[in-house]
Amino acid sequence: MTTIREQASRGLKQGDAFTITRTFNERDTNVFGEISRDMNPIHCDERFAAAKGLRGKICHGLLVGGMITEIGGQIGWLASGMNFRFRRPVYFGDTITCVFTITEADERNRAKADAILSNQQGEVVVEAWLTGVLPGQAERAILAQT
């Protein structure tokens, strides 16, 4: 069991924060493009990326933003809303750190969270605002067993 899941099985509250890191590569982007059918040439054609003023092909914003679903899956978060602001491109080889913080939680387990995703230079690449439902006592017991 991961430490994130262990914390979730004990219960979550406002102020709890989780951090993960991932390095993105061209294969990730190609697979995501196939799954999402987003074949924008900015992800797969150097000439097009250069014409846009970029230093190379870039990862899909939702692929990078999807890091929040790794944390959400570990804590048993049932998403009801996600809003993203894509601040900077993510290039192949960039290492992204995602910090997911629960900003509100009520007695019915409805919650809000913020996520800040930054590259290896500390530059914010994605900001996200989330709403969802935290696991209740029965779900936490199951999380503790997985």
Rank of each mutant, 00 (worst) to 15 (best):
M1P: 13
T3W: 06
T3Q: 14
R5L: 00
R5Q: 02
R5A: 00
E6Y: 03
G11R: 04
G11S: 02
D16P: 05
D16R: 15
A17Q: 11
F18C: 13
I20S: 10
T21I: 08
E26V: 10
D28A: 00
N30L: 13
G33N: 05
G33R: 13
G33I: 03
E34I: 07
R37E: 11
N40A: 00
N40T: 00
P41M: 09
I42M: 07
I42W: 05
C44T: 09
C44H: 15
D45P: 12
F48T: 10
A49C: 08
K52Q: 08
K52R: 08
L54I: 00
R55K: 11
R55F: 14
I58C: 04
G61Y: 03
V64F: 08
G65R: 03
G66T: 02
T69Q: 13
E70H: 11
I71W: 08
I71C: 12
Q74S: 14
I75V: 03
G76Y: 02
A79S: 14
S80A: 11
G81W: 12
M82Y: 12
N83K: 15
N83I: 13
N83T: 09
F84N: 08
F84T: 10
F86T: 03
R87Y: 13
V90W: 01
I96S: 05
T97S: 10
V99N: 10
A105W: 15
E107N: 08
N109P: 15
K112C: 04
K112V: 01
A113M: 15
L117I: 07
Q120W: 00
V124I: 12
E127D: 12
W129R: 14
T131L: 11
L134W: 03
L134N: 01
G136Q: 07
Q137C: 06
Q137H: 08
